[in-house]
Structures are given as structure tokens and as C-alpha cells.
Design a protein around this nucleic acid. Structure first.
Length: 488
RNA sequence: GGCGCUAUCGUCUAGGGGUCUAGGACGGAUGGUUCUCAGCCAUCAAACCGGGGUUCGAAUCCCCGUAGCGCUACCA
């Protein structure tokens, strides 16, 4: 069993591509097969090396590693189509000898005119096949003279039937497509041709790809037949959609489509994967968050949906927060510490230097308030040495009538506290409240504001315990005298 | 235009003839969590595209319609 993911390096990895890669990866993992990465860079105008690097980096970040690919090689390489050009030409030869492919000398202008005329006459804009009847001697002479030409495939006059794993039997009537180009005049293969040659040579057994390729499949089936090769099994996964149900794309106001954008926004790979994995796939039970291992166990082609799915950033956000709240402490550490080459560093430098134990305890305390890793600096701010200026709401809490008294009393109580742990701090605060006859919000908020500069965050006793007595007392004392200073 | 695919709460989906007064999740609303929160808990509102069949019985099967999307390139 061998599957592949075949991106064209013409931009960044799209969430739809990431999902396709994930499904392929899952299928390979589940059946102990190989997951092949092939770069489809035959569009020289749009393909870039930078894009290829970006795609590979995004896939690695997601943890979707490949068994064979452009960087690590494999028995069926090279894995970059631009390095396989001789292979495509070599495979065109027998087809030409068999009369299944012919030289076409039509120019772009002629083709455009032909298409325009067909459309105007209400006919489908497909190639007329006029070069098909060129005498081979004449064609040879023109080619020998250096006249640019492409190679077109002689489309057979029979219907094509596809047994798709998600769509069932799909029949394409004959006569729907004209003779299509297989080798361009610049010597590069077209998508359908390169795809068929490569999938066969790379011994791909299952092609899991997006539905947009469904209409290409009859062309590919014709090529398999012409070569006398058995086609692989196909599964066309429904598209991921914008909120208006058009194919998801980069557009103003819509959710980010690039995997890298989510990474830079502080989303973790597990969240993206578990969200994407459930777009168009259902595990068969009520689980809503599945790990890769869960998905590997659950993944079957016949639980793939056939209708498109709208991408919902709100649900992805929930998924990300869920992972941040629930993942094992070590995983949270790893996410926080990781700084990708182009990923922002979400962990403040001073926090990086903390002893592991303290860092883990603080991360554990603040994780419930994290929606993305980008929230880390904000949540960690109270724990660094120089607390940032209080937020307006905190300022307000400190300006309350009883705030200074509360802070001063808390400072005194904390200074004498024997049990400097969350439990001890909690009872100290309670005692302060009882002595002053203040409770609830009026009691806690000024202390919280003095300690953290904010009005919300983790439980107060936990914050105090983590902060340490010295810093707590200092900050509370400062808040305890402030109103007097302000009055002057 | 042609061909193809698709059609359940706002969104992701379960459902494959009776167990559906249609289930779960996100989002929303409400309440709780002897301090706060984007956290946690609880409750509520919210859907079978339309029309014909088949059947004792249809969200489930068939047909037609409608709508949306995809493809129709010397892009992939």
C-alpha cells in the first residue's frame, strides 16, 4: 500500500492541502504503507524553491513526515517532477509510436480563436483535433525544421467509469473532452500526464486527493488504459469551503488559509490536525477531539463525507484552546519552547531562563487562560520581574476606597505567613478579609490587581504562591500606599 | 453552455426504512463556579432544500425540480 501527497510549490501550504496530506498520512500509517511526498513543479512560471521549502517546513511542523520525498529520497526518485523530465519524454515515445499521441503545431492564437468560435456557436470549447490528421511525414518535417509543437493525446471515443471510494461509481460520457496536451511545446509535461506516469512509476496504490481533481480522473484513466497500466484506487475528498460555500481561498475578511498563518498566530499542530481531521471525516462515535493515534485507528475511507465543509475558525480556536488546556505538561512545554525558523518566539526570554520546575508550574497555572500560544507573553507578564503597567481595569480596582487598606493588610499578613503555599495564602487572605470586614470581589480584586496588574487570571492563591513571598509583599506594599500619593 | 459532484440545527456532523418528540460538538443564550476570566459545570434555543413516487411506515430508497460548488487550459 503506497499513497502520496503531491503539492505544487506555488504558494504556501493550504489548510486543504494539509488535510489531504493528513488523510494520506493516516491511511499509510494505518496500513503500514509508504507515504510519498512528490513535488509537482512543472509550472515553471509559478513554482518557486522558497515555496517548496515552506511546504516541507509546514508539513514537518504538522508532524506529517514522509517516507520518500525530495529531501530524503527513496527507491522511486527523483521526487521533484522538474527532475523527471526525461522520464516523461521517454514515456511519450511509445505512445506516439502507437499513434495514441500526435504532434500539434497550433499556436496559442489559433487555439484561442478556435475556442472563441466554439463558445460563440454554443459548442463546448474543446480542441477540434485538427492536427490529429496531419500526415506523419509532414509533421516530422515541421518538427525537424524546429517548429514548436506540443504532443496531444488521442482521446478515445468511449465513456470512462470511475469507482471512487467516496463517491461510488461515477460515469463520464464519451466526447466530453478534446484531445488534451500531454507534453507542452516547452518540453514540460502537463499535470495529468506527469501525474499518471509518476503514480505508476512510484507504485502508488491509492490516490486520495481533493474533489477538484474528480473531473481530471477520466483523462488519467484514459492514459492508464493507453499505457496498459492498471489504475490505482481513487478517493476524492470533498472540498473545504469559505463561509459562502465557495472553494476556500485567500480572500479579504475570511479565515487564514495558510498553515503558516495559523502557526504564526500561536496555534499548535495537534489542534490544526484534530480540527482538519474531522472536516469531512467522522470517526463513527461521539468523540470530538482525536489525536493522531486515535485518527489512525479510526480512519477508513468509507467514513469520508461527500459534501463540502465550511471552514469554521471559531471551532478551530476552541480546538486550539482545548489542546492548550488539556495536553500533558511536557507537551505544553515543548510547544512553548519551540521557535520555528519563521515562527515568533512566544515565550519571553526571561521565562526561558527559569528553572524547569518553576516554568512548568507557572505554565500549568496560566494554561487555562490561553487561547493561543500568542497569549503567553500576556499571561506570563505578572511572573516576570518587572510587572508591566496595570491595565485600566486593574487601575480601577486599586482606586477603590478600601483597596489600599486591603493591600497594606495583605502585605503585612503575607510577610508573616508561615505556610507559603497556595493553601496558606488562601487562609491569609481570608483572615485579612475578616479583620477588615471585607469580602468577595472587594477583597480579592485589589490584591490581584496589585500582584498582576490585571483583573483576571488564574486563582489568586496560586499566583501568590508562584510569585514568592518577597515579590508579593513588595507589590502589595506599593499598592498599599499609592492612593495617598495620588491625593497630593 | 456542457459534464460531474453535493444537499440534516448558523457551522462541523451522527443517522444507512420503524428505536427520530432527529443525537453529539463549535458558536449563541441563560444560570452556577463564598474574586476574575477567553477556563470548568449545567440548562435552553436551533435542522431533515421543494415536489412526486415506492412502502403499512422515509431524514433514510427512486425520480423530477431547485440551489450551490467543481471541472471544462500548453495551471495544478
Amino acid at each position: 500500500m503506497r499513497v502520496r501527497f503531491a503539492p505544487s510549490p506555488t504558494g504556501w501550504l493550504h489548510v486543504g492541502g494539509a488535510r489531504t496530506a493528513y488523510f494520506n498520512w493516516l491511511y499509510a500509517r494505518k496500513h503500514g504503507g509508504a507515504f510519498v511526498l512528490r513535488i509537482e513543479d512543472t509550472d515553471v512560471e509559478r513554482s518557486t524553491a522558497a515555496s517548496e521549502r515552506g511546504v516541507l517546513e509546514d508539513l514537518r511542523w504538522l508532524g506529517l513526515t514522509w517516507d520518500e520525498g525530495p529531501d530524503n529520497g527513496g527507491p522511486h526518485g527523483p521526487y521533484r517532477q522538474s527532475e523527471r523530465l526525461e522520464l516523461y519524454r521517454a514515456h511519450a515515445d511509445p505512445l506516439r509510436a502507437a499513434g495514441q499521441v500526435y504532434r500539434c503545431f497550433c499556436t496559442d492564437a489559433e487555439l484561442d480563436a478556435e475556442r472563441a468560435a466554439a463558445t460563440a456557436a454554443g459548442r463546448p470549447p474543446q480542441y477540434s483535433g485538427r492536427c490529429r490528421t496531419l500526415a506523419s511525414a509532414a509533421a516530422d518535417a515541421r518538427a525537424a525544421a524546429g517548429e514548436p509543437h506540443s504532443l496531444r493525446f488521442v482521446v478515445p471515443a468511449n465513456e470512462q467509469v470511475l469507482d471512487d471510494a467516496v463517491r461510488g461509481r461515477v460515469t463520464f460520457p464519451a466526447g466530453m473532452v478534446g484531445d488534451f496536451v500531454v507534453l507542452r511545446s516547452n518540453g514540460l509535461p502537463t499535470y495529468n500526464f506527469a501525474c499518471v506516469v509518476d503514480d505508476h512509476l512510484m507504485e502508488i496504490s491509492h490516490v486520495l486527493r481533493a474533489e477538484e481533481h474528480l473531473a481530471n480522473t477520466p483523462r488519467q484513466l484514459m492514459l492508464y488504459a493507453a499505457f496498459g497500466w492498471p489504475p490505482p484506487a481513487f478517493a476524492h475528498v470533498a472540498l473545504i469551503l469559505n463561509s459562502d460555500r465557495t472553494k476556500m481561498s485567500k480572500r479579504a475578511g475570511e479565515a487564514a488559509v495558510a498553515v503558516g498563518d495559523w502557526r504564526r498566530a500561536g496555534y499548535v499542530p495537534e489542534a490544526l490536525l484534530s480540527y482538519l481531521g474531522l472536516l469531512g471525516f467522522h470517526p463513527g462515535d461521539d468523540r470530538e477531539v482525536l489525536t493522531r493515534a486515535d485518527m489512525t485507528a479510526a480512519f477508513v475511507l468509507d467514513r469520508l463525507g461527500s459534501s463540502g465543509s465550511v471552514f469554521d475558525p471559531a471551532k478551530l480556536a476552541w480546538m486550539n484552546a482545548h489542546w492548550l488546556h488539556e495536553a500533558p505538561g511536557a507537551t505544553l512545554q515543548a510547544w512553548a519552547l519551540r521557535a520555528g525558523s519563521d515562527a515568533p518566539d512566544f515565550l519571553p526570554e526571561s521565562v526561558r531562563a527559569w528553572p524547569l520546575e518553576l516554568r512548568m508550574a507557572v505554565l500549568e497555572a496560566v494554561r487555562g487562560n490561553l487561547a493561543t500560544l500568542a497569549d503567553l507573553p500576556r499571561e506570563l507578564a505578572p511572573f516576570v520581574d518587572e510587572v508591566p503597567l496595570p491595565e485600566p481595569a486593574a487601575e480601577q480596582a486599586l482606586a477603590a476606597a478600601s483597596a489600599a487598606a486591603v493591600c497594606a493588610a495583605a502585605a503585612a499578613a503575607f510577610a508573616e505567613l508561615a505556610d507559603w503555599r497556595a493553601e496558606g495564602v488562601k487562609s491569609a487572605v481570608r483572615t485579612v478579609g475578616e479583620t477588615l470586614g471585607i469580602k468577595g470581589r472587594e477583597l480579592f480584586q485589589p490584591i490581584r490587581a496589585a500582584l498582576t496588574g490585571r483583573t483576571h487570571g488564574p486563582e489568586l492563591p496560586l499566583i501568590a504562591a508562584l510569585l514568592g513571598r518577597e515579590r508579593c509583599v513588595t507589590r502589595l506594599e506599593r499598592a498599599g500606599v499609592r492612593p495617598a500619593a495620588e491625593r497630593e
